[in-house]
Design a protein around this nucleic acid. Sequence first.
DNA 1: CGGAAAGTTGACGCGGGTCAAGGAATGTGG
DNA 2: CCACATTCCTTGACCCGCGTCAACTTTCCG
Lengths: 248, 248
Amino acid sequence: MPARNRKLKIADIKVSCGTCSLSELCLPHGMSHDDMDELDKIVKRQQPFQPGQHIFRAGDTGHALFAVRSGALKSYCTTEDGDEQVIGFTLPGEVVGLDGMSDGNYASSSVVLETASICELPYNSLEDMCHTLSGLNRQMMRIVSKEVVADQAMLLLLGKRTAEERLANFLLGLSSRYHSRGLSANQFNLPMSRQDIGNYLGLAIETVSRLFANFQKNELLTVNRRQIILTDMRRLRAMVEGCAGSKN
Amino acid sequence: MPARNRKLKIADIKVSCGTCSLSELCLPHGMSHDDMDELDKIVKRQQPFQPGQHIFRAGDTGHALFAVRSGALKSYCTTEDGDEQVIGFTLPGEVVGLDGMSDGNYASSSVVLETASICELPYNSLEDMCHTLSGLNRQMMRIVSKEVVADQAMLLLLGKRTAEERLANFLLGLSSRYHSRGLSANQFNLPMSRQDIGNYLGLAIETVSRLFANFQKNELLTVNRRQIILTDMRRLRAMVEGCAGSKN
DNA sequence: CGGAAAGTTGACGCGGGTCAAGGAATGTGG
DNA sequence: CCACATTCCTTGACCCGCGTCAACTTTCCG
């Protein structure tokens, strides 16, 4: 057992990048098997994080990327006058911590919404590997570039779209992300509160609530607290026409 | 004269990354002199671009980053229903084209606002160099990470701030960017139209115009079409308290 | 000089924020 | 197991910031 690992528990057995069910989504994509073995060596695995725990906080010294294997995270910034802005949500197969590379400190905080198991990828190790593994370098740029594209899509959403379009786009984005990791595209549980959704979409919590009610009345979906069933994705898509879906 | 360069003209004489006045801002930052010479070899320089010319368009095969040495660019996306969303503006010492690395195609378009001289940095060459120059790799991640942080700050702006706060933040951002390349922090010309500003900030063009009028009435600045003089930056800053300035 | 593009200013209305009250789910101690 | 508090969500009433529409002015450019 490697020294730096904390007490290993269940869920950490027989896990390697090679066998990880997320290997298509996480860093290894586009890398050879040998490359993956190399990557596997630098990954630090920890016991699962519990809801409310922070992966890192804004201002912390940035030293690693974190790949989410299960659970869900919320990223947010805190303004000087105290209130928070939700930057995004991280689902399995996705990565947080890119923003720590710019000046050595994380610009945002990352907190657990649903119990999460997470792989830690230290910058230093990644950088070293980039010199030897040609695939990793490209893949890292691809990931971070994708982040840029996703953020730009969000800019469009917040700048131009109505409340209705924002929520529809948000739900379809979640749907697509769940789907791409093999889960149902039309039925899922929201890992976040109305508060978080509203904050993220630049809407009041009451507006979010009302929109869910509207959508249900118009038979676009069924909602019960955090359980969502999308019943008419075609019409939902029609609402967001012209918006690139957030992430993926 | 290298084969790929088009006819070289004035403004392209005696230019190298080593002597470039922007070397502090552009890629070379944090690299050794030898490294810069290497970088210099892969840079393609072209004759100046004229206003209205495109550096690249959304959908084009992404093959290079573009570093702006002078002039100004506008980045934008076009939605399916035709209208455009301004993603950002690029000033001297800054880089565009990061979004072409995710899936091989640019996600946004980049058009010239003010006559611009531009260095082209092909992805392939950059990638090759990353294997040999340790400084470059880190610097590239820093640049792209900075982009992520800046986009996130914009998300906060569009999601939470009033029209007034957005414009104040925008002006201070420009001010800071001009200042960091040695120009005046309180007096500059806007390279973009009201249309572009409004689009970028998620505001109607009339709102932008009214705000400029208000700001002037309140003696925060003097505005004459595109010429701006910030006369009370302290109070402007007070308005945006809690917003991270966009870029830099 | 004429036509178009860019910018300004005013009047009006609506989307969605704010305030307020209440219901439903979950937790906590007795 | 039940009162009680707390958190999360919902729903209604009101109202204001900013978008929309429209008219006009100024600048730009052939």
